[in-house]
């Protein structure tokens, strides 16, 4: 290639790289806007055109955590009363002239999300590791049919399954119950986890186990002492995927929970009216909720392709 040509190629290259960076920024604008909004002071919320740069306020985060009442107009608090306030009470008082009455629903919904997600992930991983190992290492009659059956359960439109499950759970008292959601999510993620974990276990050479069994290990011991430690990365990646799926799930939670066991996804979008169109607080809730998923995405980036194709594509 001539020198001129080479130079032209490198200029094109730089331009394309710059374009990619600009595109990435534009692509993330909706996300950045929501993060930006979650720090907006009350007085700027309804401003048009929307302002992007301002002195950030933490008040929206306090508002999403609390239930408040407005001080009656004309109320003058004495200096002593103000001094007795905690820092968050002060912030809310100065910004929206409100008094914090109690903790809001957000923390309990968030806790529900955490409990349901963590426990269902643990169950899924335990069941799936055993099954994946068996599917990977043994000749099982009708194995491919069984595996296909497991996969097919994941592809069903949820509603078809949800109607009878709802009737069943209502009968058993599992509606609006954390245990009900945990069972549902475990079943929902199980097919995925078995497929992905089987892929990881397939990659461990059988020779390890053969050697161990020659040394007198039983089948279960080889499973426990060799397969589990060897597939730890795979187990961790699968667990993170299950966490993300359950954390984000909306349809089941929307139908199955009303208040006591409700998680964030069916709760937050319907708070707009309740929050008195407090966009900043809604944005704050959304930001808090997506943080775990974002962190896990970054941790998972090497295994993402494998996960989203159910282990079919192993980069």
């Amino acid at each position: 290639m001539s020198a001129v040509n080479k130079k032209r190629v490198s200029i094109v290259r730089i331009i394309v790289i710059i374009l990619i960076c600009i595109f990435t920024f534009i692509y993330l604008v909706p996300l950045l806007f929501v993060i930006d909004t979650s720090f907006k002071p009350w007085t700027l919320i309804k401003e048009w055109p929307p302002r992007v740069f301002f002195k950030p306020s933490i008040a929206p985060y306090i508002r999403i955590f609390t239930a408040r009442t407005v001080f009656p107009p004309g109320t003058k608090l004495t200096q002593e009363q103000i001094d007795n306030m905690t820092w968050y009470q002060k912030i809310v008082y100065y910004e929206t002239n409100e008094e914090i009455v109690r903790i809001g629903d957000f923390p309990s919904r968030f806790a529900n999300s955490l409990i349901v997600t963590l426990i269902s992930t643990a169950f899924t991983i335990i069941l799936a590791t055993f099954s994946a190992y068996a599917f990977s290492r043994f000749n099982i009659k009708g194995k491919n049919d069984l595996l296909f059956f497991i996969l097919a359960t994941r592809m069903l439109p949820a509603v078809v399954v949800l109607i009878p499950v709802f009737l069943m759970f209502r009968k058993l008292g599992l509606a609006d119950n954390q245990l009900g959601l945990i069972i549902l999510y475990t079943a929902f993620n199980l097919s995925f986890a078995v497929w992905v974990l089987k892929g990881f276990i397939d990659e461990i050479p059988v020779e390890y186990e053969e050697a161990a069994m020659v040394d007198g290990y039983t089948r279960f011991q080889t499973f426990w002492r060799i397969i589990i430690p060897q597939s730890m990365t795979g187990i961790a990646a699968t667990a993170v995927f299950c966490f993300i799926f359950s954390w984000n799930e909306f349809g089941f939670a929307f139908i199955m929970t009303k208040s006591r066991a409700q998680t964030i996804p069916p709760w937050l979008p319907y708070q707009m009216g309740v929050l008195g169109y407090d966009w900043a607080a809604a944005a704050a809730g959304a930001v808090l909720f997506i943080i775990p998923a974002l962190i896990f995405t970054v941790l998972l980036r090497k295994n993402l392709v494998r996960g989203i194709t159910f282990g079919a594509i192993r980069k």
């Binding site: 993330l28 909706p30 996300l31 806007f33 929501v34 909004t37 993300i244 954390w247 984000n248 799930e249 909306f250 964030i264 996804p265 069916p266 937050l268 979008p269 707009m272 966009w279 809604a282 944005a283 959304a286 909720f289 997506i290 998923a293 974002l294 896990f296 995405t297 998972l300 989203i308």
Partner: peptide, 16 residues
């Protein structure tokens, strides 16, 4: 990043 967020929360974010 957008891919692993909750769809309903993505909906809420776009609503805002």
């Amino acid at each position: 990043l957008p891919m692993t967020m909750s769809p309903v929360i993505v909906g809420l974010m776009w609503k805002l």
